Simulated scan of single mutants.
Amino acid sequence: MAGETEENNSKQQDLDELTYIISHDLQEPLRMITSYVQLLNKRYSDKLDDNAREYINYAVDGSNRLKKMMDDLLTYSRIGRPVFNRVDVDPEETINSVKKHLKAKYPECENRIKFSALKQIKIRADKELLMKLIYNLVDNSFKFNKNKEPEIKILFDENDKEWLISVCDNGLGIEKEYHGKIFGIFQKLHNHSEYPGSGIGLAICEKIINKHKGSITIDSEPGKGSTFHVSIYKER
Rank of each mutant, 00 (worst) to 15 (best):
K47S: 13
D50L: 14
D50A: 15
D50M: 15
A52Y: 11
R53S: 11
E54P: 00
I56S: 11
Y58T: 12
V60Q: 09
D61H: 12
D61I: 09
D61E: 13
D61A: 14
S63R: 08
S63H: 08
N64S: 12
L66Y: 09
K67H: 11
K67C: 00
M70D: 06
D71C: 01
D71R: 08
D71V: 08
D72E: 14
T75D: 14
T75K: 14
S77A: 15
R78D: 05
R78H: 05
G80H: 05
V83A: 10
V83M: 04
R86E: 10
V87F: 07
D88I: 04
V89H: 03
D90L: 02
D90G: 05
D90Q: 06
P91Q: 03
P91T: 01
E92M: 09
E93W: 02
T94Q: 10
T94H: 01
I95P: 08
N96P: 00
N96W: 00
K99V: 09
H101I: 03
L102M: 06
Y106L: 05
Y106F: 15
Y106W: 04
P107T: 12
P107W: 10
E108S: 12
C109G: 02
C109T: 10
E110H: 01
N111I: 05
R112S: 09
I113T: 04
K114F: 09
S116F: 04
S116I: 03
L118W: 00
K119V: 05
I121A: 01
I121E: 05
I121K: 01
K122L: 12
I123R: 01
A125P: 02
D126F: 03
K127R: 14
K127N: 08
K127M: 00
L133P: 06
I134E: 09
I134Q: 07
Y135L: 12
L137N: 04
V138T: 12
D139C: 01
S141D: 07
F142E: 01
F142H: 01
F142V: 03
K143Y: 02
K143C: 09
N145Y: 08
K146T: 07
N147F: 02
K148Q: 11
E149N: 11
E149L: 10
I152E: 00
K153F: 03
I154Y: 04
L155W: 05
F156Q: 03
D157N: 13
D157S: 14
N159G: 10
D160C: 00
K161Y: 07
E162A: 13
W163V: 04
W163C: 08
L164F: 11
L164A: 01
I165T: 06
S166D: 09
S166W: 06
D169V: 07
G171S: 10
L172P: 02
G173K: 04
G173D: 09
I174F: 09
I174V: 15
I174A: 07
I174D: 12
K176E: 15
E177I: 07
Y178G: 03
Y178L: 10
G180V: 00
K181N: 15
